[in-house]
């Protein structure tokens, strides 16, 4: 019944239908890497993918910072300061940014902490839990500070496309990416579109 016209958040629309090899980056924020595992589930189609794209920052390449990219895939929601920095880096370097999976789309499992008070959580976990003696809330500057609430990524930056699912299947990710690479507005019909 008509594709969702989601990307009305203005901004540039990249033409990804041309034959130039595109750069693609991926990251997992407050997620479980399940969506990345699903990406690997495209199996031998990975060979086709690497013929059409070069991987930039991604767990697959171990590149630590995102360079100028055509497509960014973000798994997971935003639960801490580092998530925000990574997401902003992706937004400023990727022409098209895609939310992949339930956590990126609506906060998912991590967001189930949103009805709890963060201060009380930290206190209970590190100070008052029964088996804790001389506990201390970790305060090393290397550790990212948690935000008071978990947010889906579209509440932090503009997002161009969404692939829901927990995780989206390899087939769904493949369908979406090939649509995008071929210059078609990506569509997920039955049974590829699911939220669980």
């Amino acid at each position: 019944m008509g594709a969702e016209r989601e990307p009305e958040r203005g901004a540039e629309r990249v033409v990804v239908g041309d034959k130039r090899k595109l750069r693609l980056a991926t990251a997992s924020l407050a997620g479980c890497f399940g969506c990345h595992m699903s990406l690997l589930d495209i199996d031998e189609r990975l060979f086709e993918l690497v013929e059409r794209v070069d991987f930039d920052r991604s767990p697959l390449t171990d590149i630590k910072h995102c360079g100028a990219c055509d497509i960014g895939l973000i798994e997971g929601g935003i639960c801490n300061a580092e998530n925000v920095h990574v997401l902003r880096e992706f937004r400023s370097h990727c022409k098209v940014l895609i939310a992949v999976g339930a956590c990126a789309v609506n906060g998912g499992l991590p967001a189930q902490r949103n009805h709890l008070d963060l201060g009380q959580c930290l206190q209970e976990i590190y100070l008052t839990a029964p088996d804790i003696v001389g506990g201390k809330i970790p305060n090393d500057p290397e550790l990212p500070l948690p935000l008071d609430k978990v947010h889906p990524i579209h509440e932090i930056v503009r997002i161009d496309y969404f692939i829901p699912g927990c995780p989206p299947s390899g087939d769904a990710i493949w369908k979406f990416l090939t649509d995008l690479l071929d210059g078609r507005t990506p569509r997920l019909g039955h049974p590829l579109l699911h939220f669980d």
């Binding site: 963060l118 948690p146 935000l147």
Partner: peptide, 16 residues
Amino acid sequence: ALAAARQMTGRDDPAA
């Protein structure tokens, strides 16, 4: 949104 965690950890460094 980081204020609660800052307070609980006593941190005030740039990353906080």
